[in-house]
Every structure is written in structure tokens, then in C-alpha cells.
């Protein structure tokens, strides 16, 4: 028996919004530790890794490890039927071929349930080694989303250049070129507004705008985003989900042919 409850459906809606543009379907691996998902986008350029810890749920029970392959378009249709404030419970029997989403209104007067067919998906799990990154940048998630949106008007690629002075995002194309520099904040009233840079070595890497923009769909989950970079390895874009877990996106760089 698997049962996981969150007191506000809005959290699950945001998690789904953060992955459904990159992935058509994905396997949710459930264990007593929580829910894990790892999947590559269709073109195998990026990887999504989601962790929702069992202690972050309002109720969590998982008697046997369970892998639930879900069509994210179908899941999205179902979650649209929930109000943000509804309690949402996901339930499945051991070895089941369906999962049930139950929504309960705050006043307990409306209860709905939606049963969704599960899919057998080819699981390909990639091992991600522990890495000491040359540069780790933390910045407001909204600011990162704004930069990715603005720069994607100028080119297909963004160059992220990080030194101890700051981080620079650049793009160029037919229109011309654009550069956005962010310095490390000296003092801020609110921690979530800070830009911080931990640098061992300066790094300059090029990434596809299209994927960066897709990652920023996770912005509503977190005030801050963390970018981890080293030369010639994938960028890690991490959003922490308060009290519940995190979503990490890995993006392969563009490299000289």
C-alpha cells in the first residue's frame, strides 16, 4: 500500500509544472524515504531529478517499493481538477496498474477522486557522481527566470561566465548582443534577495536558452536558485522545495566542435 498526502494541492501542481514541459512521462519511484524521479528530456540533453522526502508529506506510507510510470499530460489534467487549497492524497495498492488522486476541500464537504492508469516505462537511471564544482552561484529564482527570458530574445545560447567579481550572462544573434552582470550582494535585508558566489576557479560555459527557460518553470517552488558549474561538465540548476525536497536540472554544455 502506498499513500502520500499533502495539505495543499498547490505544491504538487507546482512540481508538475516544473517538469511537464521537459518530460512527457516519468516514473515516480516510491519508497519509505519518499518519492524520487529521474528522467532525461526527449532529446537527452538535460536530466531532471526530483526528490520529495517522506517527512515533508502530511501523511506518508509506503509498505513496498513501488515504481509508478505516469503520463504527465494526464496527471496535469487531473491536477487541474484540484483547487490549490485542497488536500491531495495519492494512493496505490502494491503491484497496482492504477494510481488514485483524491482531493478534499478545506471544509471537507467536497471529495473527488481520479483514477489514472499507470504505464510501464523503460527506466534508464544515470549515476551522477559527487562533484566539487568550480563555481556555485545562488541568486533569487525570479531574477534567474527574468535573465533567461530576456536573453532568449537575442540568441539560442547563453554564455554564463563566473568570476569572483560576479556572474555574467551573455547572448548574441541577429539583433545584436546582450550582457547582464550580477555582482555578489554586499548586504541584503532578506536572505532570498542575496546573490552569493563561491568560486574555486573562474568558469565560462555555453548553454541552450530553451532548456534554461524550461528549468525556470520551477521558479514558483523556491525563492532562490543555485547554479553549479565546472569546465566541460553539465550545469546543475537546483531549486529547493521548502520542507519537502528539491528539484535539480542537469544540462549538458555546448562545446566547440
Amino acid at each position: 500500500m502506498f499513500e502520500a498526502r499533502l495539505n495543499a494541492a498547490t505544491t504538487l501542481k507546482k512540481v508538475l509544472d516544473a517538469i511537464k514541459d521537459l518530460l512527457n512521462e516519468a516514473t515516480f519511484d516510491c519508497s519509505d524515504a519518499g518519492i524520487q524521479l529521474q528522467a532525461m528530456d526527449n532529446s537527452h540533453v538535460s536530466l531532471v531529478s526530483l526528490t520529495l522526502r517522506s517527512d515533508g508529506f502530511d501523511k506518508f506510507r509506503c509498505d513496498r517499493n513501488l515504481s509508478m510510470g505516469m503520463n504527465l499530460g494526464s496527471m496535469s489534467k487531473i491536477l487541474k481538477c484540484a483547487n490549490n487549497e485542497d488536500t491531495v492524497t495519492m494512493k496505490a495498492q502494491d503491484n497496482a496498474d492504477t494510481v488514485t488522486f483524491m482531493f478534499e476541500s478545506q471544509n471537507h464537504e467536497k471529495v473527488s477522486d481520479y483514477e489514472m492508469k499507470l504505464m510501464n516505462l523503460d527506466q534508464e537511471h544515470l549515476g551522477i557522481p559527487e562533484t566539487d564544482y568550480s563555481c556555485v552561484v545562488r541568486m533569487p529564482a525570479m531574477e534567474f527566470a527574468r535573465i533567461c527570458r530576456d536573453l532568449s530574445q537575442f540568441g539560442e545560447s547563453v554564455i554564463i561566465c563566473c568570476t569572483k567579481e560576479g556572474v555574467k550572462f551573455s547572448a548574441s544573434g541577429d539583433v545584436g548582443s546582450a550582457n547582464i552582470k550580477l555582482a555578489q550582494t554586499s548586504s541584503v535585508d532578506k536572505e532570498e534577495e542575496a546573490v552569493t558566489i563561491e568560486m574555486q576557479e573562474p568558469v565560462s560555459l555555453t548553454f541552450a536558452c530553451r532548456y534554461l527557460n524550461a528549468f525556470t518553470k520551477a521558479t514558483p517552488l523556491s525563492n532562490q536558485v543555485q547554479l553549479s558549474m565546472s569546465a566541460d561538465v553539465p550545469l546543475v540548476v537546483e531549486y529547493r522545495i521548502p520542507d519537502l525536497g528539491h528539484i535539480r536540472y542537469y544540462l549538458a554544455p555546448k562545446i566547440e566542435e
Binding site: M40, H44, L47, H125, V233, Y250, A252, K254, I255, E257
Partner: peptide, 14 residues
């Protein structure tokens, strides 16, 4: 000329 690399070039199957 820049080439987009695949993520599987960096991380191997478990």
C-alpha cells in the same frame, strides 16, 4: 561552431 552535447556523455547508466 558549438555543438550541443548529450547528458549521457557525462553520466553513465547505473
Amino acid at each position: 561552431n558549438l555543438e550541443q552535447k548529450k547528458i549521457s556523455m557525462y553520466y553513465k547508466n547505473k
